[in-house]
Design a binder for these strands. Structure first.
Lengths: 219, 219
DNA sequence: GTCTATAGAATGATAGAC
DNA sequence: GTCTATCATTCTATAGAC
């Protein structure tokens, strides 16, 4: 407070505070964005604070100012991804019919794979290595979310709206297939002749995935 | 040769040669097996030669005797996995009907996910990080294999045996879904209450995957 | 809040005795 | 072929000037 009053003598205190605040916000954002990309490309150990600092065009020591340790930065990256997943997942059961609910969910998941391939890769990487960081999320939030969706799918089955498939494996299939376009992006692009999928190709992919899964469960 | 004759003075040269040969073979095998596991769990950078040596109960220097560099060992691990993939893939088009060909292929892929989860993870890890090592395989062998299978699927479509889906996305779905049980093993086990899938559960998973995909393309 | 310089620890790889 | 000891490098993290 006293500090701010002194500063008033030399300029607009509000502007100064805002500039500082937005600088911090912007630095956090740029560090997280490049961190996500570097972690996705090189893994936790392979990614270095120096590489992230270079990508963010910040001195390495500044990263340690905002995030005390490399692990703290990684944790923040993981949490951001998890939030995106959860928000998309919420749209799953706000729809009335199985057709609408599942096609919306699949479409949203495909859109996330396209918009956040790095985040998906960091998540995949984490799970592949035994989920040392996100173990809690798997056992609590993800498990709860999964169980409620399983209930919904089971209701559809008892109402005769879809085939009596195991809801668990249906969910795994949706996750695996949609995330494949992000996690195995490099393989998909290579098999596409080295060119990233364009708008039409993404739409075609979404349509195919949706068609096979919906028809596969009897819709 | 002269060396072996000298050794003959002290024992059975054939036994000695065999023992040495099998010791070498056994060392190679144990290094590769544990290397695969460590690489799968920690990634290329995260895995240390010391950790692999400890797992194989060999001095670290011995690993460098058999494999000059860490990269050479990793490369060998990748090649072993790739061979397994290709062999399983060959069973794809030896069958007559789409139903038989695809259900056999899916079943084989599920069996590999169960028998070689570490190998699958190393492969996934490699692709996620942009396939710095296996780029060649993707552009040549995998691309060729994929294209021949696409031709087969397209023939099924023109013959009216399956729905007119995009063969590429059908293959991606099979790959993604079957490999999910290996790559995301930790997540699958966690959502299964912490218990690995038993025989019945693996069979159930295979049946569900097969059912949805086959029915999904109109078989 | 930013940046330089560096400490301290871990790791890939090798030399050289056995 | 095996193993110990060690070098050279790299990286996280921090101290301290500005």
């Amino acid at each position: 407070m006293a500090d701010q009053l002194v500063k008033n003598l030399f300029g607009d205190p509000v502007d100064t505070a805002n500039k500082r605040h937005s600088a911090r916000k912007e630095n956090l954002e740029v560090i997280l964005r490049h961190g996500e990309r570097i972690f996705a490309e090189f893994g936790f150990k392979g990614a270095t604070m120096q590489a992230i600092a270079d990508a963010a065009t910040l001195p390495k020591a500044n990263l340690h100012y905002y995030f005390p340790t490399k692990m703290a930065l990684y944790h923040e990256v993981i949490e951001r991804i998890f939030t995106i997943w959860l928000e998309a997942a919420d749209s799953f059961d706000t729809s009335a019919s199985p057709r609408e609910a599942l096609s919306r969910y699949i479409r949203k998941k495909m859109e996330i794979s396209r918009a956040h391939p790095h985040g998906s890769k960091v998540w995949a990487n984490e799970v592949i290595h035994g989920a040392p960081i996100i173990q809690d999320y798997l056992q609590t939030t993800l498990k709860d979310w999964t169980n409620t969706r399983i209930d919904v799918i089971n209701r559809w089955i008892t109402e005769g709206k879809i085939d009596p498939v195991d809801p668990r494996h249906l969910l795994y299939m949706i996750w695996a297939t949609t995330q494949h376009y992000a996690d195995f992006q490099h393989q998909v692009v290579t098999l596409n002749g080295g060119t990233p999928l364009d708008d039409a190709q993404w739409q075609r992919a979404t349509e195919n995935v949706t068609h096979i899964i919906l028809k596969g469960i009897g819709i």
